[in-house]
Write a protein that binds this DNA or RNA. Structure first.
Lengths: 182, 182
DNA sequence: CCGTACATGTAATGTGTTACATGATTTA
DNA sequence: TAAATCATGTAACACATTACATGTACGG
């Protein structure tokens, strides 16, 4: 579900990771790499880029500086202000509602040794563990016996799946968290 | 990400599963049971219920028929038309874009022996397998060597996680699909 | 030369969140 | 009797999708 003002941070992260990018290239990234956790169409991207440029987060590149600049493309680069904004966003700890921003933030941390990585992962491990425990608790209260399961079998299956999914997430995060500490 | 006109089907499914419900009760369900795959606030629910009643999908219950009717609550019940609409929605096969409707539709199939269950599950198994294969393919093309991984470590991790998540999903669906066929 | 992909932009519409508003009932 | 919860509703605003619109570059 779309959280407020996430798109500009994604665009900022994309440009930052790739040094310089056009709106069209960002569109492609959304299709191929980011589709798993976010979507955006070109009609969202282009106006947003203009707003970000107005706010000084990014700057359009002069023609001479462009890498293979043909046609009417506009390459953007992150400004110093933009870098600060991005870092602040990445540093902001996840909350229970924020949760789905994890893969997004993770996506934009390029350096394996970044100091942003360990706290991000351990925080998500906390949140996923909490959620798994909550789902387990729901299972015992909503489906205490076989009769309850038979009355709402689909609901039972979705809850089972939720527990399975979150357990798998916790395992993966634990492994990664342990690796980080080595 | 919010798909067009999903909320009314969820409300329809909720009322249908529980025989009769008030808007407030639906709100609670969103908080406790459905939060994992959908959210809706009361300011969305109440107008939507009125629209659905106007369209003849549901009908407000007369006071006398209400179970423990106090206060100014309005209980709704699914009409015959509404039942048809719900069944049609549940029968509509999932597509690659629709994908995230799976847990939602599953949630509303109460009967373990429903004929809707096997095709829904086997279709989702197809889609998840496709997605897992796609992600695996991305991994080999985007990260062919250690250097590529080091340049965009976060991206590498999110892709790894995607493959892990989807593999886990496929396993779960395969198990369920096999059970269905017994 | 025709279709597809590149490349950008705006407008209309649909959907969702937050804020504003009111009043009844229950519990401490 | 005050606070929390129940219960419903509307309005303003933020965000996303679809449609409309234009033009370039390239491959068959």
């Amino acid at each position: 579900m779309p959280k407020r003002r996430t798109l500009p941070y994604i665009l900022l992260g994309l440009i930052h990771s790739n040094q310089q990018m056009t709106g069209y290239q960002m569109m492609q990234e959304f299709k191929h790499e980011i589709s798993d956790f976010w979507t955006a169409s070109h009609s969202q991207i282009y106006p947003e880029l203009q707003r970000m440029a107005d706010d000084g987060w990014i700057r359009p590149l002069a023609l001479g500086k462009k890498v293979a600049s043909k046609r009417n493309q506009t390459y953007y680069q992150v400004t110093t202000t933009g870098e600060q904004v991005l870092t602040e966003w990445l540093e902001t700890p996840l909350t229970a509602n924020d949760d789905e921003l994890f893969p997004l933030k993770l996506f934009f941390i390029d350096d394996q040794n970044s100091k942003l990585l360990p706290p991000l992962i351990s925080r998500q491990l906390e949140l996923s563990t909490e959620r798994r425990n909550y789902l387990r608790h729901r299972m015992t209260t909503v489906f205490p016996n076989q009769t309850a399961i038979q009355a709402h079998y689909g609901h039972y299956l979705t809850l089972s799946r939720g527990i399975e999914r979150e357990s798998n997430y916790v395992s993966w995060l634990k492994k990664l968290d342990a690796e980080m500490k080595r």
